[in-house]
């Protein structure tokens, strides 16, 4: 009774010998008479089926939709590139693009350097205890895993003009109160501040991981050669952090062009479109105006912008590391 498995094993060995790369090999690969070889594909099947149904199909379907006029329940009709031409003539789209780009620039040029500074501080002598470092790592990660709804609710209270925490502080030090979320000038600043609070920690952790990968000997060698802290940072640490910097910057850029929840909940794009982001405009066009074709074109424009900026950053990185 225990001979059956042995026969299987010997049979497989025979097939391998007799026809490598031939019909037997095909059968082996696709499981004809050799059930065991199909197993990996079966394991992968659920993932690929889900991937195709919920990602690939909507992606290509949206691409096709972006070339159609599909308003409300009317039958869609092919209109070529008209939706994309409309993008460059649509003032609200251009306004949203401008707002999103401002936020992306703030993410890259304010948030990322701040995150690096925090990572350096956590790694430096300022936080010497190992236990305390673990605490900082957890504390830095918490905002990132907090629900956007909770973050928006919390900051709507902090930014409240009449009884918000921020204005209470301003009052206490004799500064004038500000209308954080209702002033056209300040609303974007408020959104950027929330973005910094949310992503500063996780970006610091990326930098912290990058810093930990830099061999300590290099810093020691630089110190022996007479380099001070500043020079060591500029000529040793920073160049070796380039991959991390690239990763953080690419992430920040992509996240910026996908930003939706915070401005939607905090300002709803207002006042007077001062915080209208591309993703919210897409939502408005898609679900309020119910212009599905144009909404798909907006979505693709966002994807193309993100890809374009990422390629630019990669090319820049290559040039810098050459």
């Amino acid at each position: 009774m225990a001979t059956q498995p042995r026969r299987d094993e010997s049979g497989r060995a025979e097939a391998n010998k007799s026809a490598p790369g031939g019909a037997a090999s095909f059968k082996r690969r696709w499981g004809g008479g050799r059930r065991s070889t199909a197993a990996p594909y079966l394991f992968l099947l659920p993932f690929f089926a889900i991937y195709c149904t919920f990602l690939l199909y909507p992606t290509f379907s949206a691409l096709w939709l972006s070339f159609q006029e599909a308003v409300a329940l009317d039958v869609p009709s092919f209109i070529g590139l008209d939706n994309y031409v409309r993008l460059v003539q649509d003032e609200r789209y251009l306004h949203a693009l401008r707002n999103t780009t401002v936020y992306a620039l703030a993410s890259v040029f304010i948030l990322s350097p701040l995150a690096l500074a925090v990572a350096l501080a956590v790694r430096s002598f300022l936080v010497p205890s190992v236990n305390l470092k673990s605490f900082y790592r957890i504390a830095l990660f918490l905002p990132f895993i907090t629900s956007f709804v909770v973050i928006a609710l919390m900051f709507s209270l902090i930014f409240n003009k009449d009884f918000g925490l921020l204005n209470a502080f301003f009052r206490s030090v004799g500064l004038p109160e500000l209308n954080w979320l209702r002033s056209e000038r300040l609303a974007m600043v408020s959104i950027v501040l929330v973005g910094i609070w949310t992503y500063l920690g996780v970006n610091s952790l990326y930098f912290l991981a990058g810093l930990q990968n830099i061999p300590h000997e290099l810093n020691e060698a630089a110190a022996i050669d007479g380099a001070g802290r500043r020079k060591t940072f500029l000529y040793v640490t920073l160049p070796l952090l380039r991959p991390t910097i690239l990763f953080v910057v690419v992430q920040a850029t992509i996240f910026s062009y996908q930003l939706f929840e915070i401005p939607f909940l905090l300002t709803n794009g207002g006042p007077s479109d001062a915080t209208l982001f591309l993703s919210q405009y897409l939502y408005e066009v898609g679900f309020s105006q119910f212009d599905r074709g144009y909404a798909a074109a907006i979505g693709y424009s966002m994807a193309l912008i993100s890809i374009f900026l990422t390629v630019i950053q990669l090319l820049l990185y290559r040039r810098l590391t050459r």
């Binding site: 065991s36 079966l42 394991f43 659920p46 089926a49």
Partner: peptide
């Protein structure tokens, strides 16, 4: 008495998952 091997179990599980997914769809 046939022993259920680890590989056999995984194969059966994978097949069942794929089948359930196809039925679900």
């Amino acid at each position: 008495k046939r022993m259920l091997t680890r590989r056999g179990f995984l194969k059966a599980g994978g097949g069942a998952l794929a089948g359930a997914y196809a039925l679900g769809l």
